[in-house]
Each structure stands twice: as C-alpha cells, then as structure tokens.
Design a protein around this nucleic acid. Structure first.
Lengths: 350, 350
DNA sequence: CCGAAAATTGCAAACGTTTGCACTATAAAT
DNA sequence: ATTTATAGTGCAAACGTTTGCAATTTTCGG
C-alpha cells in the first residue's frame, strides 16, 4: 500500500538492533557471525519479506552476476539449442543471462555490445552477424578484462577465446560423400564469404573436388543469405538450363529443403536424378521425405563448451586469458536424399 | 593495464573542472545545460572512453531497464518465436530482456521469480510450467506494482494481465474438422490438466463430439507430457487392439508427428485409414509427408501483444493495472493428413 | 549602469550493499 | 586476578549515478 514498502538490510538491522554489517554478513553466512545471530537475522528477513537488491550489491562489488549472449536470432534451430544449454548451465551457477539478438545487423550488434557493457555483464558470449568483419566494438571487453567468448560465427585475427565447429571438415565430408555416391557435377550454395563458416565450407568443398580431380566451376557456386526466398531464386537459375547438376551441397538445411521441394515440383527424382545434402541437422531434415543428409554440429556440446569456457574465465580473476580455439567435431548424418550407388574413388576406398 | 581503468562521470567532471551534476545532466541532454557545455562534456566522454554504469543508475532510480521473461523452454518452436518478437520489440524501446527457462520445473520457476525480483526487473512476462497451479511466487511483483504479464500458459483465478490463445476454440475446431472429414472414433492426446491449455482443448474436443452426438469415451483420451517418448508409449496402447480409431487429435505437433510415423510403420494409411491433426503449427508439420493439419496460434502476434502490454503497463507509473484477458485468434491449417470425404453434419452444413 | 528575471551550474544527499578495520565481549592461559 | 588470544559485532567509506534546491552567472529592459 504505502510508498516505501521495500525492505532493506537496514530495516532488518533496526528491527533487530544490530548493525547493518552484521546483518549483511549473517545473510551471507560469514564465518565470523554466530549461529544464533544468523538464525535470528534470517528468520527476520523472511518475516519482513526482505529481498536482496542485486543492483546495489553489483555496484558495490563491481560484478553483476549477469552474462551477456549475443546471437543472430534466437528462434533459429542452431542458436536456440545452444542458447538453451548455455542458459541452463549458467543458471545452475547463479548467473543470469541477458540474451540478445542482432538480427544479423551489424549496427544492432554494435549497439548491443554497448548496452551489455553498460549493464556491466561479467562475461560475454557472441556469435556474430554474417557481416561482422571488424570486431572493435568488442574491444572494450578485452580492455577491461571481461571474459569474452566467441562461438560458431567467430572472428579471424582477433585475440579471443573461440569455440567453433569444424566447418572445413564439414564441407569436405559432405562433398566427398556426394562424390562417393556418384555425383560428378555438384552445386554448392553458400552463405556470404564475410562469415568464417562459409569460407571454410567452401574450402572443404573445393578440396574434395580437387581430391577427386573434378574441376571446380565458378558457375556452380552461389553466395547469398541462406533464406528460403534466396534459395528459390537460385533454383530458378540452376534449373534454367541443362545439364542439371547431379548433386547439391547446401550450406544450411532451409536451403536444402527448398531445393528438394523445387526438385519435386519439376519432377526431378531425389536421390535418383539428383542428390541433396544440407548442413546443421535441423529437425526438419530428418522428417521430410526423402530425409535429407546433413551435418550435425553438436549444438548441445557447443553450448556446454561455451558455458564451461565462460565459467572458467570467470574463475581466474586475473587476466590470464589466453587466445585459443576449441573445435567441436561434426558428424555426417547420411539419409535418403543421398542414397545411391557408392562409386569407388581412385586409390583409397572407404 | 592499471587497476582503476574505468572512467566515471566524476573523472569527466574533474577533467573539465565541472561539477558531477552538470556532467550527468549534460550527458542526458537536460534542458538547463547550455549547448556548449553539452558538446564539451560529450566530446570528453567519448575521448575518455566513458561508459555509463547501468547498475549505479538503476540503484539510484530504482529501475533497471531490464525486463524478465520466464518460459518453459526457449528452444521449442512456439516460445522461441514469441521470445524473439518480444526481445526485438523491447530492445527497440531500450529495455534488456533477461530470458530464463524453467524447464517445466516448478521448483526452477520459483527460483527464477526470486532471482528476477532481486535483479529488480522493471516488468515480468511469464509462460508457466505445465505444473504451476499455485502462483504465489509471483505475488511479490504484484505487491510492488511491478507489471506482470502472463501469456499462453496462464493462471486461473490470479489477478493479472493475461494474453492467451483461444484453446477452447482450437480444440473445437480441430475436432469438428475431423468429424466433418468423416471421423467417428477420435482419440485425443492431451497434456496434463494442470495446464489451462489442455483443459480448454479437451473441453473443445468434448463439445465437438457432443455437437455431433458422438459419445465421449474416457478410453479415447490420454494425458501426459507431450514428448516423443510418451507419444510412442501411447501409440502402443492405442494400436494394441482393434478397432483402431479413425482420427487422432494430438495437442501438439511433436505428438502428431510421432503418431504419423507410427502409423506409417504399422502400414496404416494417412489420411485414408486414419486422419491426424496436431497443434501449434510447428514448421515440421508442414514439411512432413503427408503434411499435418494443425492449429496456427499466431506466435508473432502473441509476442507483439505481450511486448505491447509490458510497455503499456510500464508507462502508467501508477498502479492502475487492471486484470484483463486478451485472446489471440487461432487458425486451422488443413493439410494432407486430414484429407478425405467431407461428411455432411446434421443440420448446418459448412 | 542597476536590478530583476532567466539561464546555468554546483552541493550534497540518497539509492542498498559490502568490507577493512577497529572495537568489545568472551574464553583460555598464566 | 591479569594478560592474551579469539569470537563476534559495529563504524564508516565506497561503488557511480541522479536530482531537489541553492548559488552563481548571464542577459536585458529601462
């Protein structure tokens, strides 16, 4: 009812005729406080409906018990899964998580870095925008020894802890798989090369072609944001003229699904006429008919690693933060969309 | 390098030989400060790398510019979509969002309410656990006039702002649809009745049966958490003996998908032998073959409404908060899994 | 050039905690 | 009983802002 209804430790102290410091210590189980006093204080705190004020404590301690997380979008499968894991893990350790999304806008990402620093997050985990190539908006965290961890979409040449998937190996494995299944003309649909993921997947794709002496053709690779709309446009281009490719490696599953549907529409049989593989192992890839071969990136494991890295960096109060890179393994999940004859590769057989 | 590297407005004031209050006001574009001073202060702030400390401001103002969000899981389609929208909307208005997940554990939900109150969130949005029937852990928000909005999974008899889908209508519509398509023996797989969603969907299901003079059989309805594992167990029961049902209304799409796959396995044809409908319009429902009829709950719209409600309640500084309920419409999305002859219903035809 | 109004700026308290240090009471040792 | 160690408690400053009010400066009409 009344205005000043919030109880503070000062109120408890007055009520109990103790000092504020004693109350504070009692509530925190400080060893110097007698058991009786602790009991008394805690009981009174409960009775008065006392609630600690994190902001006041944070100001005093210079730590907020809050960690920031910046991802492109929280509703996409991969970041959502990772966020879930991180959130649960940190929650267990008494940290709150400020989850923010950049919507793949560099401008928003910069603003978020600013806001999260102002909130004095104790640490920050980031998966960048597709278009982030300059990382100076994160400098302030490094300068102030605030643990900073990048994952999945990570910087090049930026001294910071990095946890990423093995995208080169992923690209290589998928492409090799398609080749082994008999594909000789493989289209690759990639995201923009401003993002490390796609640079590496493309590199893997090219390596695989080279290993099998298949010439790389510039016309067989496409770069754009991997949305359904863009994928459709690319389909129009790919299937505008013969010969059609006999394999498609899409750098995400939304794209792979779109291609599959397009093929169905133009009466191309998958996998008989054309084989399709995606990336990220979105739940939809498993469920569509035919199910789509994809690359599992172990999002849960990545989330664990990110959380662990954050917690570890938070431990070591001193700024020992070493620059290092952790690679999360990938696993090829082969499904119906790439079934077909396994063709012997020259020399080494599978 | 050095320890005390954080710049504060005190530092700026000293550097400029101004008072702290002037600096504070200048940075906030207070009208009483001259244009020259503002310029000078802002330039110096930039130069010194000053970053406001939200915690200090929050302590003084008694507002954190942070809003709490509690959902069962952030990686599930429906809450993820809603969270995305809420987050973006609030971000636009300068609020941070503390996203937390209860993992459908009442215990965790209680702990989160506590933590978020301690963080002095300016408002709170909640979609409860499946098992939350007592809401007293949220009392403290009401008592202190902190805007509190429940959505989707909402309380009964708790004086608070509520935004929910029309689950009764949803249940009714789906069941009517199945009946119109010729089903006469419809199984309903529901979540636990501790959650409003399922109470209402069941009520809708029963109403539809009644309207069509189809007897309700207790043995044709199942209650459990709607996971894949549980769905499989239920399938075992349903198809343990003849006669098989000719329609299934599952209260979520994960369950519907599981049933569909089970039917496929035991060579039941969908929709010829049995029709299946789900709920929530998960992206997988559209993509599976046959595609599954489901109920679109307009998550984006719900997110908008929640964000709008929060912002509105934050406006009115006075505790005028009226208890009211907003209903988000639903839309039946009919797909292949329920195709078949439309049977005339007695009297009113579609 | 004077005085009053208007425009700027400064003072100091407050927000709720935590914590180093000093202090008092109690227990143990002589 | 006196000293010494130990356990328990209190004082007061500090964290970085914001803001009501007072104080100062500027502007300007006359």
């Amino acid at each position: 009812m009344s205005k000043r209804t919030e109880k503070t430790i000062v109120d408890i102290a007055e009520e109990l005729e103790l000092s504020v410091s004693t109350v504070s210590r009692a509530l925190h189980d400080h060893p110097n406080i007698s058991a009786k006093t602790k009991e008394k204080v805690k009981k009174m705190a409960r009775k008065m409906g006392y609630r600690p004020n994190t902001m006041a404590a944070g100001l005093r301690n210079n730590k907020s018990k809050t960690i920031g997380l910046v991802v492109p979008r929280i509703s996409m499968f991969f970041p959502a899964t990772i966020s879930t894991v991180i959130q649960n893990k940190l929650q267990e350790h008494g940290y709150n998580l400020l989850i923010c999304q950049s919507n793949d806008s560099l401008e928003q990402e910069i603003a978020l870095a600013d806001t999260l620093y102002s909130a004095r997050v104790d640490a920050l985990a980031v998966s960048t925008t597709l278009y982030t190539t300059d990382f100076s908006h994160f400098d302030v965290f490094n300068e102030n020894n605030i643990p900073l961890v990048f994952f999945d979409r990570v910087p090049k040449d930026y001294k910071v802890k990095v946890i990423k998937g093995d995208d080169y190996l992923g690209g290589l494995t998928v492409t090799n798989h398609l080749i082994e299944r008999g594909c000789k003309d493989i289209v690759h649909i990639s995201g923009p090369l401003t993002c490390n993921l796609y640079v590496e997947r493309v590199a893997g794709y090219k390596s695989a072609l080279q290993q099998h002496k298949i010439p790389f053709k510039k016309s067989r690779i496409f770069y754009h944001e991997l949305t359904r709309e863009n994928a459709l446009q690319t389909c129009e281009k790919i299937f505008a003229q013969q010969p059609y490719p006999d394999g498609v490696f899409a750098a995400n599953d939304t794209t792979a699904i779109t291609i599959l549907e397009y093929c169905r529409k133009i009466k191309l049989r998958v996998p008989e006429d054309i084989k399709i593989a995606g990336y990220s192992n979105d739940p939809r890839a498993e469920i569509i008919t035919p199910s789509i071969t994809s690359v599992d990136q172990c999002p849960a494991l990545m989330g664990e690693k990110v959380a662990a890295a954050l917690l570890e960096l938070l431990q070591q109060s001193k700024p020992v933060q070493k620059y290092n890179e952790e690679i999360i393994p990938i696993e090829l999940i082969t499904r119906a969309s790439t079934e077909g004859p396994v063709v012997k590769t020259r020399g080494k057989k599978k």
